[in-house]
Design a protein around this nucleic acid. Sequence first.
DNA 1: CGTTGAATTGACACCGTTCAACGACAGTGG
DNA 2: CCACTGTCGTTGAACGGTGTCAATTCAACG
Lengths: 256, 256
Amino acid sequence: MKKADDTDYPVTGRFLQGRLRHAMSRHEADATEAMFDTVERFDDGHVLSRRGELVNRSTILVDGYVIRAVVERDRRHIVGIQVPGDFIDLHGYALKRLDHDLVAVGPVRVSFVDHERLNHTLRGDLHLTRLMWFSTLLDASIHRAWIMKMEQLPADGRLAHLLSEIWERLRLVGLGDAQGFDFPMTQIDLADACGTTAIHMNRMVQKLRAGGVVDIRRGRVNVLDHAQLRSIARYDPDYLYGPGDLAVGAHFEIAD
Amino acid sequence: MKKADDTDYPVTGRFLQGRLRHAMSRHEADATEAMFDTVERFDDGHVLSRRGELVNRSTILVDGYVIRAVVERDRRHIVGIQVPGDFIDLHGYALKRLDHDLVAVGPVRVSFVDHERLNHTLRGDLHLTRLMWFSTLLDASIHRAWIMKMEQLPADGRLAHLLSEIWERLRLVGLGDAQGFDFPMTQIDLADACGTTAIHMNRMVQKLRAGGVVDIRRGRVNVLDHAQLRSIARYDPDYLYGPGDLAVGAHFEIAD
DNA sequence: CGTTGAATTGACACCGTTCAACGACAGTGG
DNA sequence: CCACTGTCGTTGAACGGTGTCAATTCAACG
């Protein structure tokens, strides 16, 4: 499953993979990789960034999963999940303070870039700036898909949607496999990400398992019936801007 | 209620007002205003932009309300509401195709800027680029607040949250008044924005009315008990990045 | 004054929460 | 080796919020 970019770009090789990475020039890819220095490891539950903190660097997720979470009166709400290749707090470059925490789910590998360094790289390169901008807008598009799933789907559909999305996003960056993917989120985590309780989430996990749709256990998701999973989730991956009707394609070039 | 910017910048005067407008230089504000030409009017229900269409210009909302909506198998889902001053499809500058429709609610006044023109203005001005970027990240932050409200709040809380948000956003740009604000959304619209049915939304409207919290009727929202409204909505406006704990403040300058 | 869309009301079934408890399992320390 | 502990996973029952169906009233408009 190793791609060329994995070796040439050990830190940023998955950034925008499956999306606009093809629009990055060799020079831009090199410049992006060069911004990052060492890769650091953190354990499950490590808080990479806390709501309200002043941030002066941004983080790329090299390996593992990170959730965006907000804790409010003893209940935690998960508003997003990041997969390898995601520039998980690039929006902090413009916002300076984030409205949510970034927390590792399972062990992660990340790397950092100072905003000062980012300024230096982006200054005078509107094309690369727009690629970075695009990656933050991708997160916004995913947010909108989450809003829709909360508005329209019951709990089993929300779970199916979440699993469909993660699987799709992993495949876009060359991860996962034909049967499913490794996924360390507990049923409690899944409940917080689907706006339901752990008790009800447990029933939905069992329902999908009993229906031969998907088997979720011990940090592993095995998809048994992809068609049924998609159907329950009413899943359409267009919003990820991979190959599909919304793909940016050749329209991204900046005319001079 | 007229501010200086209303006359100096009739089209873009409300852009980022209450947020980072203070970080815009006179030159940047002038350059932004100069990008736009005529202001056009559209009636209620006019589709300004359709999902999947290739866009080569972006739109600023001068007056009125616009919703972001996705229609899926005979049901419409509203994933966002835009108020005057919002650069409503600036994300199309990088995405090129949007994942949702933009539809006028009530009469609107808008103005357009070609992406080519935008390139010209932003090239070589990383500071202004970052301000524009910031405004799209603001939308993303609002999306996250919506995800949270869908995850945690019952229907009356969602409605209260929506009203709280619109009121707050209007006040940030110098609109609305002490009693409430004009708001042309029907109960059907409100239902689609809160992930419930029109019938149930009607009950929630009546509940808030009977409780002396807020009176919604005939295109007008009158807030009767602001404290109670906030409480039902569990509303905290920090995510709008106006004055508050998350405010960017003086940290936005680009170090050289 | 008839038409149309919005707002309103009531009955009923169902999805999801809550409370209370128990089982499975890994890590820890005696 | 076993008892202890905490987290995750699981189950059952009662309650309440919400969706659905069907029908009626109201407001705006030509």
